[in-house]
Protein backbone atom coordinates (compact mmCIF):
# COMPACT_ATOMS: atom_id res chain seq x y z
CA UNK A 1 0.00 0.00 0.00
CA UNK A 2 1.49 3.37 -0.92
CA UNK A 3 2.16 5.80 1.87
CA UNK A 4 0.55 9.23 1.86
CA UNK A 5 2.37 11.68 -0.35
CA UNK A 6 3.03 14.20 2.45
CA UNK A 7 6.25 12.50 3.50
CA UNK A 8 7.59 11.95 0.04
CA UNK A 9 10.53 14.26 -0.62
CA UNK A 10 9.99 16.69 -3.49
CA UNK A 11 11.18 15.47 -6.84
CA UNK A 12 14.67 16.57 -7.81
CA UNK A 13 14.75 19.87 -9.62
CA UNK A 14 15.38 19.88 -13.29
CA UNK A 15 18.61 21.48 -14.55
CA UNK A 16 22.11 21.59 -13.11
CA UNK A 17 22.74 21.97 -9.40
CA UNK A 18 23.88 25.29 -7.92
CA UNK A 19 27.25 23.74 -7.09
CA UNK A 20 27.81 22.83 -10.72
CA UNK A 21 26.81 26.31 -11.92
CA UNK A 22 29.10 27.84 -9.32
CA UNK A 23 32.00 25.66 -10.40
CA UNK A 24 31.45 26.63 -14.04
CA UNK A 25 31.37 30.33 -13.13
CA UNK A 26 34.59 29.95 -11.13
CA UNK A 27 36.33 28.20 -14.00
CA UNK A 28 35.18 30.85 -16.49
CA UNK A 29 36.50 33.64 -14.24
CA UNK A 30 39.81 31.82 -13.86
CA UNK A 31 40.10 31.39 -17.63
CA UNK A 32 39.38 35.10 -18.21
CA UNK A 33 42.03 36.04 -15.63
CA UNK A 34 44.64 33.84 -17.30
CA UNK A 35 43.74 35.14 -20.77
CA UNK A 36 44.02 38.74 -19.56
CA UNK A 37 47.37 37.92 -17.94
CA UNK A 38 48.75 36.36 -21.12
CA UNK A 39 47.39 39.10 -23.38
CA UNK A 40 48.40 42.15 -21.33
CA UNK A 41 51.63 40.96 -19.74
CA UNK A 42 54.55 43.22 -20.78
CA UNK A 43 57.34 41.48 -22.65
CA UNK A 44 59.99 40.54 -20.11
CA UNK A 45 63.27 42.39 -20.47
CA UNK A 46 66.54 40.56 -20.14
CA UNK A 47 68.21 42.15 -17.14
CA UNK A 48 71.43 40.27 -17.59
CA UNK A 49 74.75 42.05 -17.53
CA UNK A 50 75.13 45.02 -19.85
CA UNK A 51 77.48 43.03 -22.04
CA UNK A 52 74.82 40.55 -23.10
CA UNK A 53 73.27 41.14 -26.52
CA UNK A 54 70.21 43.35 -26.81
CA UNK A 55 67.07 41.25 -26.71
CA UNK A 56 63.86 42.72 -28.02
CA UNK A 57 64.93 46.20 -27.06
CA UNK A 58 63.72 47.60 -30.39
CA UNK A 59 65.32 50.51 -32.09
CA UNK A 60 67.38 52.50 -29.66
CA UNK A 61 69.19 55.79 -29.74
CA UNK A 62 72.98 56.22 -29.61
CA UNK A 63 73.20 56.71 -25.84
CA UNK A 64 70.72 53.95 -24.96
CA UNK A 65 72.15 50.99 -23.10
CA UNK A 66 71.23 47.48 -24.19
CA UNK A 67 68.28 45.67 -22.58
CA UNK A 68 66.46 48.92 -21.84
CA UNK A 69 69.10 49.72 -19.25
CA UNK A 70 68.56 53.44 -19.66
CA UNK A 71 70.10 56.41 -21.41
CA UNK A 72 73.67 57.25 -20.59
CA UNK A 73 74.86 60.84 -20.19
CA UNK A 74 78.55 61.42 -20.78
CA UNK A 75 80.99 58.56 -20.76
CA UNK A 76 82.96 58.70 -17.56
CA UNK A 77 83.73 54.99 -17.35
CA UNK A 78 83.67 52.51 -14.52
CA UNK A 79 86.07 54.19 -12.12
CA UNK A 80 83.71 56.93 -10.95
CA UNK A 81 80.48 56.62 -8.92
CA UNK A 82 77.51 55.23 -10.82
CA UNK A 83 74.41 57.44 -10.57
CA UNK A 84 71.11 56.12 -11.91
CA UNK A 85 68.09 58.42 -12.01
CA UNK A 86 64.56 57.08 -12.65
CA UNK A 87 62.05 59.72 -13.79
CA UNK A 88 58.69 59.98 -15.51
CA UNK A 89 58.41 63.16 -17.58
CA UNK A 90 54.91 63.81 -16.25
CA UNK A 91 55.82 63.51 -12.57
CA UNK A 92 55.86 66.87 -10.80
CA UNK A 93 58.41 65.79 -8.17
CA UNK A 94 60.71 64.66 -10.99
CA UNK A 95 60.27 68.12 -12.47
CA UNK A 96 61.26 69.71 -9.18
CA UNK A 97 64.28 67.41 -8.83
CA UNK A 98 65.41 68.25 -12.35
CA UNK A 99 64.79 71.93 -11.94
CA UNK A 100 66.75 72.18 -8.68
CA UNK A 101 69.48 69.55 -8.93
CA UNK A 102 69.36 68.47 -12.58
CA UNK A 103 72.02 70.96 -13.70
CA UNK A 104 74.47 69.85 -10.98
CA UNK A 105 73.93 66.18 -11.79
CA UNK A 106 74.35 66.50 -15.56
CA UNK A 107 77.32 68.81 -15.09
CA UNK A 108 79.04 66.19 -12.91
CA UNK A 109 78.35 63.60 -15.60
CA UNK A 110 79.67 65.74 -18.45
CA UNK A 111 82.75 66.61 -16.35
CA UNK A 112 83.44 62.91 -15.92
CA UNK A 113 82.89 62.90 -12.15
CA UNK A 114 80.03 60.41 -12.26
CA UNK A 115 78.70 57.76 -14.63
CA UNK A 116 75.09 58.96 -15.16
CA UNK A 117 72.16 56.95 -16.51
CA UNK A 118 68.56 58.07 -16.92
CA UNK A 119 65.71 55.60 -17.04
CA UNK A 120 62.58 57.20 -18.47
CA UNK A 121 59.53 55.58 -16.88
CA UNK A 122 56.01 55.88 -18.31
CA UNK A 123 53.66 54.46 -15.66
CA UNK A 124 51.91 57.83 -15.23
CA UNK A 125 50.26 57.43 -18.63
CA UNK A 126 47.93 54.77 -17.29
CA UNK A 127 47.32 56.76 -14.15
CA UNK A 128 46.62 60.06 -15.90
CA UNK A 129 44.83 58.54 -18.87
CA UNK A 130 47.05 59.96 -21.60
CA UNK A 131 50.20 58.89 -23.46
CA UNK A 132 52.41 61.91 -22.86
CA UNK A 133 55.05 60.10 -20.76
CA UNK A 134 55.60 57.60 -23.57
CA UNK A 135 55.60 60.27 -26.28
CA UNK A 136 57.94 62.60 -24.39
CA UNK A 137 60.34 59.74 -23.58
CA UNK A 138 60.33 58.66 -27.22
CA UNK A 139 60.92 62.28 -28.21
CA UNK A 140 63.88 62.53 -25.83
CA UNK A 141 65.42 59.52 -27.53
CA UNK A 142 64.68 61.09 -30.92
CA UNK A 143 66.66 64.09 -29.65
CA UNK A 144 69.40 61.69 -28.57
CA UNK A 145 69.58 60.51 -32.17
CA UNK A 146 70.87 64.00 -32.86
CA UNK A 147 73.01 64.27 -29.74
CA UNK A 148 70.66 66.56 -27.83
CA UNK A 149 69.36 64.31 -25.04
CA UNK A 150 70.57 66.35 -22.07
CA UNK A 151 69.12 69.65 -23.26
CA UNK A 152 65.91 68.05 -24.48
CA UNK A 153 65.44 66.22 -21.18
CA UNK A 154 65.84 69.50 -19.31
CA UNK A 155 63.51 71.31 -21.74
CA UNK A 156 60.67 68.82 -21.23
CA UNK A 157 60.88 69.15 -17.44
CA UNK A 158 61.09 72.94 -17.70
CA UNK A 159 58.00 72.79 -19.90
CA UNK A 160 55.88 70.66 -17.60
CA UNK A 161 52.23 71.75 -17.65
CA UNK A 162 50.94 73.66 -14.64
CA UNK A 163 48.50 70.84 -13.94
CA UNK A 164 49.66 67.25 -13.83
CA UNK A 165 47.92 65.22 -16.51
CA UNK A 166 47.61 67.91 -19.19
CA UNK A 167 50.54 66.41 -21.09
CA UNK A 168 52.07 67.84 -24.25
CA UNK A 169 50.98 68.22 -27.84
CA UNK A 170 53.29 67.17 -30.67
CA UNK A 171 53.82 70.87 -31.38
CA UNK A 172 55.10 71.39 -27.84
CA UNK A 173 57.42 68.39 -28.08
CA UNK A 174 58.76 69.76 -31.39
CA UNK A 175 59.15 73.17 -29.79
CA UNK A 176 61.34 71.64 -27.06
CA UNK A 177 63.49 70.15 -29.84
CA UNK A 178 63.93 73.52 -31.50
CA UNK A 179 64.88 75.04 -28.15
CA UNK A 180 67.43 72.35 -27.31
CA UNK A 181 69.53 72.42 -30.45
CA UNK A 182 68.02 69.59 -32.47
CA UNK A 183 69.07 70.57 -35.99
CA UNK A 184 67.09 68.27 -38.27
CA UNK A 185 63.58 69.04 -37.09
CA UNK A 186 62.05 67.11 -39.98
CA UNK A 187 63.60 63.79 -39.03
CA UNK A 188 62.92 64.52 -35.36
CA UNK A 189 59.25 65.02 -36.21
CA UNK A 190 59.19 61.76 -38.17
CA UNK A 191 60.79 59.93 -35.25
CA UNK A 192 58.27 61.51 -32.86
CA UNK A 193 55.25 60.63 -34.97
CA UNK A 194 56.45 57.11 -35.81
CA UNK A 195 57.14 56.33 -32.16
CA UNK A 196 60.52 55.01 -33.27
CA UNK A 197 61.75 54.30 -29.73
CA UNK A 198 58.41 53.35 -28.15
CA UNK A 199 59.39 49.72 -27.65
CA UNK A 200 62.55 50.74 -25.85
CA UNK A 201 60.60 53.18 -23.66
CA UNK A 202 58.06 50.50 -22.69
CA UNK A 203 60.92 48.13 -21.92
CA UNK A 204 62.49 50.77 -19.64
CA UNK A 205 59.25 50.82 -17.63
CA UNK A 206 59.14 47.02 -17.45
CA UNK A 207 62.79 46.79 -16.48
CA UNK A 208 62.30 49.39 -13.73
CA UNK A 209 59.57 47.24 -12.21
CA UNK A 210 61.65 44.09 -12.69
CA UNK A 211 64.37 45.74 -10.65
CA UNK A 212 61.88 46.77 -7.97
CA UNK A 213 61.64 50.46 -8.81
CA UNK A 214 57.99 51.29 -8.21
CA UNK A 215 57.82 55.05 -8.55
CA UNK A 216 59.59 58.21 -9.49
CA UNK A 217 61.80 60.08 -8.93
CA UNK A 218 64.37 57.57 -7.69
CA UNK A 219 68.10 58.11 -7.47
CA UNK A 220 70.55 55.24 -6.98
CA UNK A 221 74.23 55.87 -6.26
CA UNK A 222 76.40 52.80 -6.80
CA UNK A 223 73.23 50.75 -6.61
CA UNK A 224 71.97 52.15 -3.29
CA UNK A 225 68.70 54.04 -3.28
CA UNK A 226 68.75 57.53 -1.78
CA UNK A 227 66.35 57.92 1.14
CA UNK A 228 63.61 60.49 1.63
CA UNK A 229 65.79 63.00 3.43
CA UNK A 230 68.43 63.00 0.73
CA UNK A 231 65.80 63.27 -2.01
CA UNK A 232 64.19 66.21 -0.22
CA UNK A 233 67.57 67.88 0.04
CA UNK A 234 68.20 67.41 -3.67
CA UNK A 235 64.78 68.92 -4.41
CA UNK A 236 65.44 71.96 -2.22
CA UNK A 237 69.09 72.86 -2.58
CA UNK A 238 70.70 73.20 -6.01
CA UNK A 239 74.18 72.92 -4.47
CA UNK A 240 73.55 69.78 -2.44
CA UNK A 241 74.46 67.11 -4.99
CA UNK A 242 78.24 66.97 -4.41
CA UNK A 243 77.82 66.46 -0.66
CA UNK A 244 75.15 63.79 -1.13
CA UNK A 245 77.33 62.05 -3.69
CA UNK A 246 80.26 62.08 -1.32
CA UNK A 247 78.21 60.79 1.60
CA UNK A 248 76.74 58.01 -0.55
CA UNK A 249 80.07 56.84 -1.91
CA UNK A 250 81.92 56.73 1.38
CA UNK A 251 82.28 53.46 3.22
Amino acid sequence: MPRPPAHVPPPPKSGPSPALIGAVVAVVVAIIAVVVYLAVRPDPVDTGDAGSPTVGAGASSPSALPNAGGIRVGDAGEDVPDVHVFVDFQCPWCGLLEQVSGPAITEAALDGDIQLTYTLMSFLDGNLGNDSSLRAANAAMCADDQGAFVDYHAAVFAGQPAEEGTGWTDEQLIGFAEASGVEDIESFTGCLQDGTHNDYVKDMQTRSNQEGVSGSPRVFINGDELGNDEMNTLMNDPNSFPAILEAATQG
Binding site: V40, P42, Q205
Partner: peptide, 8 residues
Amino acid sequence: GDPVGSIQ
Protein backbone atom coordinates in the same frame (compact mmCIF):
# COMPACT_ATOMS: atom_id res chain seq x y z
CA GLY B 1 42.48 49.57 -17.60
CA ASP B 2 45.95 50.38 -16.24
CA PRO B 3 47.96 47.15 -16.26
CA VAL B 4 51.33 48.87 -15.85
CA GLY B 5 50.16 50.84 -12.84
CA SER B 6 48.51 47.77 -11.35
CA ILE B 7 51.73 45.75 -11.62
CA GLN B 8 53.76 48.62 -10.21
